[in-house]
């Protein structure tokens, strides 16, 4: 054995020892994804019994005049309703509009995501249903924005407006504006069909089409909308008419008063 080979073996042994010591000494991060199966479901059940049980019942069967059954709604519905703050309701009269989510279910924190996943796993374990996609964030944004726009106008704009500015449904109900919706929330909303919204299963809109729609919504909201100046809330000609009278004609009447007063 030459000296060179002996040295190489020594370095190898040292590396193995170091790596082994590292894996033994540094603990694995305690995240929800590390939980598996039954443990996660149990945690979800505990969360359910704290936050949801009073309206949806002890076995998800719902309670008369309080809340619907959750059997078969799937964790997509859980993710959408809870991460957007619609659930748990602060008061029973609330109409379930978007609010700041409860701190323990905030999708912007690790803890919140873990809790959402656990609660979803519990609901999913009873009766199944549409599931939260495995992809997240940028993976849910499609590439064919133009096609997404076509699909959005065909399927979504009836209620959500050309660029997601909401609208009316009648009987005092309003489809939400989409300014704040995240890709995950849009995707799970399409899958689960909350409130008056229809369910868009993967047979109606394929996952790729859903992602294109999400890409379109992201492309036409916020600052992307106004190459021509202030966007006037994008409410169409109604606000334009207000500006035409108040700013345009208003300024001109003042100008005329000024010219008329000079001689």
């Amino acid at each position: 054995m030459t000296r060179r080979v002996r040295h190489a073996l020594l370095v190898l042994a040292a590396l193995v020892a170091l790596g082994g010591a590292y894996t033994l000494l540094v603990p694995a991060p305690q995240t929800a994804s590390a939980q598996s199966g039954q443990a996660q479901i149990d945690q979800g059940r505990a969360l359910y019994e704290q936050a949801c049980i009073s309206c949806h019942g002890s076995n998800l069967q719902g309670a008369p005049d309080r809340g619907p059954s959750l059997v078969g709604v799937g964790d997509a519905a859980v993710y959408f309703q809870v991460s957007t703050g619609r659930m748990p309701l602060a008061r029973s009269e609330d109409r379930g509009y978007r609010r700041v989510p409860a701190p323990e279910f905030d999708p912007d924190t690790d803890q919140g995501r873990a809790n959402l996943a656990a609660l979803g796993a519990y609901i999913q374990s009873v009766g199944g249903g549409p599931q939260v996609p495995a992809e997240t964030g940028p993976q849910l944004i499609g590439s064919d924005v133009g096609h997404g726009g076509d699909l959005f106008r065909l399927n979504c704009a009836y209620c959500h407006n050309f660029t997601g500015r909401g609208g009316i449904l009648g009987a005092g109900r309003y489809p939400p504006r989409l300014e704040a919706a995240t890709p995950e929330q849009m995707y799970t909303a399409m899958l689960s069909g909350p409130m008056a919204m229809p369910v868009f299963s993967d047979k109606q809109l394929t996952p790729e089409e859903k992602k294109d729609i999400i890409a379109y919504v992201l492309a036409v909201r916020g600052q992307n909308n106004a190459p021509g100046g202030y966007d006037l809330g994008e409410l169409g000609p109604s606000t334009e008419g207000v500006i035409a009278f108040l700013v345009g004609l208003g300024a001109l009447v003042l100008v005329a008063a000024w010219i008329g007063a000079r001689s």
Binding site: R153, A157, N161, F162, R165, G167, N225, P237, S238, E240
Partner: peptide, 26 residues
């Protein structure tokens, strides 16, 4: 200063599509 009739946001006409807040000019 003020954007008016942003036709690029409305999209091309398609008889089967529609939107909310459909108004004519004042």
């Amino acid at each position: 200063a003020f954007q008016i009739n942003p036709v690029f946001l409305w999209g091309p006409y398609d008889p089967s599509a529609a939107s909310t807040y459909i108004q004519p000019d004042w």
